[in-house]
Design a protein around this nucleic acid. Structure first.
Length: 176
DNA sequence: CGTATTTGACCCGCGC
DNA sequence: GCGCGGGTCAAATACG
């Protein structure tokens, strides 16, 4: 497969209106195990996911149902290779940043230290196992952390023109 | 009717 | 070994 580690958007043509401020570094898939990707770098603020404590309701209600059925179906697919993971911290009013690809939500879980749940998205393309995570900071509602995992190997379905409009209303701080 | 979303349950890795 | 936290699947539901 080609290691075409590049985003669907050329940080040049379409994004002329926003100009700088946009520094996207893409994670190349390293065959070697690195120490690991730390979270997103905080823009000199102090997010660091500090334990906000306070409301601890949360938690998914684990069902204590007597009827426990064991479903087989075990994906026997274990990959030792680490997929490229990239986290972006953006400021936007909406959680879902349409990057041109079509995503299908396959899960949502509440994260500790965060009042807002984390959404799990997957690329609907056949053969494309790219996943995406969207999380919003409880501290700042306007900050949304989007984590991309995997790389696309197919063209975009939608026009990037829409993306340009999005960039004008959001700022990308971190990169990997 | 087909597709996307929602939501509960299950599974796995890690820390204690 | 158990509990917790996180991640994924799959059935049901909502929406076009």
């Amino acid at each position: 497969m080609d290691d075409d580690v590049s985003f669907p958007y050329n940080s040049s043509s379409a994004i002329t209106g926003v100009s700088s401020q946009l520094s996207l570094n893409y994670c190349h898939d390293h065959d070697e195990f690195e120490e690991e990707e730390e979270m997103v770098a905080t823009p000199g603020g102090g997010l660091a996911a500090a334990s906000a404590s306070g409301s601890s309701s949360s938690s998914v209600a684990m069902g204590s149902n007597n009827n426990n059925k064991i479903i087989k179906k075990v994906g026997g697919e274990k990959k030792k290779m680490r997929k490229p993971k990239c986290a972006f911290q953006t400021r936007s009013q909406v959680d879902i940043l349409d990057d041109g690809y079509r995503w299908r939500k396959y899960g949502q879980k509440a994260v500790k230290n965060n009042k807002f749940p984390r959404s799990y998205y997957r690329c609907t393309h056949h053969g494309c196992n790219v996943k995406k995570q969207v999380q919003r900071l409880s501290k700042d509602e306007g900050v949304v952390v989007t984590t991309y995992e995997g790389t696309h190997s197919h063209p975009i379905e939608k026009s990037t023109d829409n993306f340009e409009h999005i960039l004008t209303q959001m700022q990308i701080y971190s990169s990997c």
